[in-house]
């Protein structure tokens, strides 16, 4: 379970988070929706300890993230897969090396075992025969899929998706959305999807949290959010905010 309790975060005069309260339950897929600059990606970075809150608490698996030691934080991160907005593949490595990176760094698996696991993960994201390609030889959608394969390679308890469909054409965005939903069903991982793609959020999420001006403006099932009478929520869902 992941919990945010009254979390505040500012960058100089820019108050990005202004008292976030949110609970992500075990095994659910929650989407964080909101306009640009509402603090969605900053929220994700607090979960893996890349950012520390100015005030408030971030709990993951009963551990208070800002209070964890370096080693405890690194241990926690092994259980969290992250798909970055740009996929953030290491451009000096092949697809095989990218996907197998954590296995090589954190396990004692042999090269043959790593190769098997890498192929297995690539097949889960519907990619075959790309192991020896470099990231610059991949299309945007393929890069996201490799990033996703890399995120699941350690069989994490949590996956964080940062704008998974941004920069993709509509068809590829649908494929990535389906992939996220399918992986969620297959792997039963707790997942947080940060996005401004309303369609994606309503289709794949168990719940949606709507961020506005650094606060959680609403949380609920996709139908509740979609049919809300609240003016701000309605305007956002209709793409007017």
């Amino acid at each position: 379970m992941i919990e945010f309790k009254d979390v505040y975060k500012s960058f100089d005069e820019n108050h990005v988070l202004r008292g976030i309260n949110l609970t992500v339950n075990e095994g659910e897929l929650i989407s964080i929706l909101g306009p640009s600059g509402s603090g969605k990606s900053v929220t994700l970075k607090h979960i893996i300890g890349i950012l520390q809150p100015d005030r408030g608490e971030v709990w993951v698996d009963g551990q208070l993230v800002p209070k964890l030691s370096r080693n405890e934080l690194q241990e926690l991160r092994k259980h969290i897969g992250v798909l970055f907005q740009s996929a953030a593949l290491f451009d000096s490595m092949t697809v095989h090396e990218n996907v197998g990176f954590m296995l090589r760094m954190h396990t004692k698996m042999t090269e043959a075992e790593i190769a098997r696991r890498v192929t297995e993960c690539l097949e889960q994201v519907e990619l075959r025969g790309v192991e020896e390609l470099n990231p610059d030889e991949l299309s945007g959608g393929m890069r996201k899929r490799v990033g996703l394969a890399r995120a699941i390679v350690m069989k994490p308890d949590y996956i964080l998706y940062d704008e998974p469909t941004t920069g993709l054409d509509p068809k590829t965005a649908i494929i990535i959305g389906d992939l996220i939903a399918r992986l969620q069903r297959q792997l039963k991982i707790t997942a947080i999807v940060v996005t401004h793609d309303v369609k994606l959020a309503t289709e794949i999420s168990d719940r949606i949290a709507l961020f506005h001006e650094g606060k959680v403006a609403a949380v609920g099932a996709p139908e509740e959010i979609s049919h809300s009478d609240d003016d701000m929520i309605r305007r956002f869902m209709e793409g007017q905010l």
Binding site: I50, R77, F84, Q85, S86, A88, F90, H106
Partner: peptide, 21 residues
């Protein structure tokens, strides 16, 4: 330039998120 490119393309954040300092 190598580390700088990694920083601006989130590769350094990716390393951190994967439990690698």
């Amino acid at each position: 330039s190598e580390i700088g490119t990694m920083k601006v393309s989130e590769q350094v954040d990716a390393l951190t998120s994967m439990g690698v300092d």
